[in-house]
């Protein structure tokens, strides 16, 4: 069953093309890792899916319904449809973007009470449940400033999960972390993958992508340059830019 379908998505910034005519079909339970050199448009593609960036052209279907309509300057969408779309696609950011003036539980409960109109006590109960899932129930009443980077990112994941999204979008979730803290966040993502969640993951952790993803997209030259199973793309890349990218990544491995 198709959860998300992108057809002919294009995006440019001030005349500079990021990508053009990208098609992507995401099935339920897919774990898709998006790789590519910096500037290849990985994050922009992810941000186009929940319309944090507006694509210049193309259409997005989520859960079988088309999002917005084609307008003069790209996709047009009502505020209500936009909200519905974002509730179906949860996003985790590279910089966590936790709300610093709310406690950890407050961060996770915010969407439940403000958007889903849940009562505050119910929202808090649900928030603590989600925090337990990422191993942080004991930090419920702490403020984000008191957490490590890895803990912050796990809270951000709990915040996204609380909204019951059908698809999770991870935008370089470990790139802002100390190497020692990467493991705890990847562990949570792996656990979500094992639960059968649908996810798109922009990452530089190639080893992790190999183990967790069922499909790899390699972005280059303004589009999906090569795609396939982890074995196909990461072990036996066919095209030169993919081969070069992987070789560069292996340069300092031992």
């Amino acid at each position: 069953m198709s959860v998300l379908k992108l057809v002919g998505i294009s995006k440019s910034f001030g005349g500079t093309r990021v990508f053009e005519n990208v098609d992507l079909d995401v099935e339920k339970g897919d774990r898709i890792a998006i790789l590519g050199a910096s500037g290849s448009g990985k994050s922009t593609l992810l941000r186009c899916i929940n319309l944090l960036e507006t694509p210049d052209a193309g259409s997005i279907e989520i859960g079988g319904t088309k999002v917005g309509s084609a307008g003069r300057s790209g996709l047009r969408i009502s505020e209500r449809d936009l909200q519905a779309l974002r509730l179906r696609a949860g996003m985790v950011f590279q910089q966590f973007n936790l709300f610093p003036h709310m406690t950890v539980a407050g961060n996770v409960a915010e969407g439940l009470s403000t958007v889903r109109r849940m009562s505050r006590p119910d929202a808090r109960t649900r928030a603590i449940m989600e925090l337990a899932r990422v191993g942080l129930a004991d930090k419920a009443d702490a403020y984000p400033a008191r957490l490590s980077g890895g803990q912050k990112q796990r809270v951000a994941i709990a915040r996204a999960l609380a909204m019951d999204p059908e698809i999770l979008l991870f935008d370089e979730p470990t790139s802002a972390l100390d190497p020692a803290l990467v493991g705890e966040v990847l562990g949570v993502i792996e656990q979500l993958a094992e639960e059968g969640r649908t996810m798109l993951l922009v990452t530089h952790e190639i080893g992790f992508a190999y183990h967790v993803a069922n499909r790899i997209l390699f972005l280059a030259e303004g589009g999906i340059y090569e795609s396939g199973t982890p074995d196909e793309v990461l072990k036996h890349p066919r095209r030169p830019l993919t081969q070069h990218f992987l070789k560069e990544h292996k340069r300092f491995q031992f």
């Binding site: 974002r86 950011f93 403000t114 958007v115 915040r159 909204m163």
Partner: peptide
């Protein structure tokens, strides 16, 4: 900007984001 983005990513409307975040 990340605060706006995080709030809209969980479905908050602009006026809700302004008031709460």
């Amino acid at each position: 900007r990340g605060q706006w983005e995080a709030a809209s990513a969980i479905g908050m409307r602009p006026h809700q984001t302004m008031r709460r975040v």
